Simulated assay, not measured.
Amino acid sequence: MVEQTLPEAHSILSWPKYRSGLTPAPQLPMSRAEMNELGWDSCDIIIVTGDAYIDHPSFGMAVIGRVLETQGFRVGIIAQPDWKSAEAFRALGKPNLFFGVTAGNMDSMVNHYTSERRIRSDDAYTPDGVAGKRPDRAVTVYAQRCREAFKGIPVIIGSIEASLRRIAHYDYWSDTVRRSVLPDSKADMLVFGNAERQIIEIAHRLANGESINSMTDLRGTAIMRNSVPDGWHEVDSCELDTPGK
């Protein structure tokens, strides 16, 4: 239960452009060579995704990437990296601000398995429909590899996979109640829903020198806390609704 209100969300258009001279890229870079063509020595933000990169608004990573670009940030994409080591996550170098991690347009477990828990033979979000280009529980695996690739760089997770797992939840695939994806992924923050407003504010506040750990007032985000903050208190759900009634 909340005893205080969060501040009003900033308008997307209220932030000054971070790099005033940045022009839109023909496509967001996916390699050092493409960064060099744009004259970039580094990316401000790197988005890691379980989907192939298609620069179209039906792909969430493309929308978020282009929204951040309009705010003046250099955004790179690492699409369907080899998750067996951290090397693929170093392809664009160290991001100046943060890694953004998404499993893609689909939950990776739904992408991999049928409702009868049988392995699917194809993947609609991979070139030629090839299956197996992303791991199970991709958000968790990718976030851990980002952390391994560049220690100390904030890792922010999102997408439908993260959004639906931001709190303890029943997991159909293992038939257990699993905890939030945040501690398993070792991410600093989770953004849920469409997340344009949150991710823009996070990017600008990081660019202004604020620590990711101090951002505890953002709507549409989930973070881990060691204790209940002032002005808040815990409520046992059984006190709100008697089970079975």
Results as ranks from 00 to 15, higher is better:
175 D>V: 07
204 H>F: 13
239 E>C: 11
89 F>L: 05
188 D>H: 07
43 C>P: 13
227 S>I: 04
98 F>M: 15
199 I>T: 15
121 S>C: 11
48 V>M: 00
170 Y>D: 10
147 R>P: 04
60 G>V: 06
194 N>F: 10
114 T>M: 12
14 S>I: 09
3 E>N: 08
70 T>L: 08
92 L>D: 07
25 A>N: 08
148 E>F: 03
89 F>A: 14
16 P>K: 12
138 A>E: 11
205 R>H: 04
77 I>P: 05
3 E>S: 11
208 N>A: 15
88 A>W: 12
165 R>M: 09
214 S>M: 07
229 P>K: 00
232 W>H: 10
97 L>F: 11
98 F>E: 09
83 W>S: 12
109 M>K: 05
113 Y>M: 03
12 I>V: 14
219 R>S: 07
31 S>T: 15
12 I>K: 05
221 T>F: 01
96 N>W: 00
225 R>I: 13
226 N>F: 02
96 N>F: 00
154 P>M: 03
184 D>P: 04
219 R>E: 05
190 L>H: 03
144 Q>L: 14
8 E>C: 06
129 G>C: 10
76 G>M: 10
57 P>M: 09
149 A>F: 12
102 T>L: 03
65 G>E: 01
24 P>N: 02
64 I>E: 02
26 P>S: 01
217 D>G: 10
74 R>C: 08
208 N>P: 07
213 N>S: 15
143 A>K: 03
128 D>E: 15
182 L>W: 05
164 L>W: 06
136 D>L: 11
132 G>I: 12
133 K>E: 14
142 Y>I: 01
232 W>D: 10
223 I>G: 10
206 L>D: 02
196 E>A: 10
102 T>M: 00
112 H>Q: 11
176 T>A: 09
27 Q>V: 09
86 A>V: 08
8 E>T: 14
231 G>I: 00
165 R>N: 13
88 A>M: 12
63 V>Q: 09
85 S>W: 06
24 P>S: 05
217 D>N: 13
12 I>L: 14
154 P>L: 05
239 E>D: 13
207 A>R: 04
159 S>Q: 03
146 C>P: 01
240 L>Y: 01
68 L>K: 00
193 G>W: 11
211 S>M: 14
74 R>G: 09
76 G>P: 13
128 D>V: 05
118 R>E: 15
194 N>S: 14
100 G>A: 03
118 R>P: 03
176 T>E: 13
149 A>W: 10
162 A>N: 04
148 E>M: 05
55 D>R: 08
220 G>K: 01
239 E>K: 14
125 Y>M: 07
67 V>A: 02
170 Y>W: 15
172 Y>V: 06
190 L>M: 15
47 I>R: 02
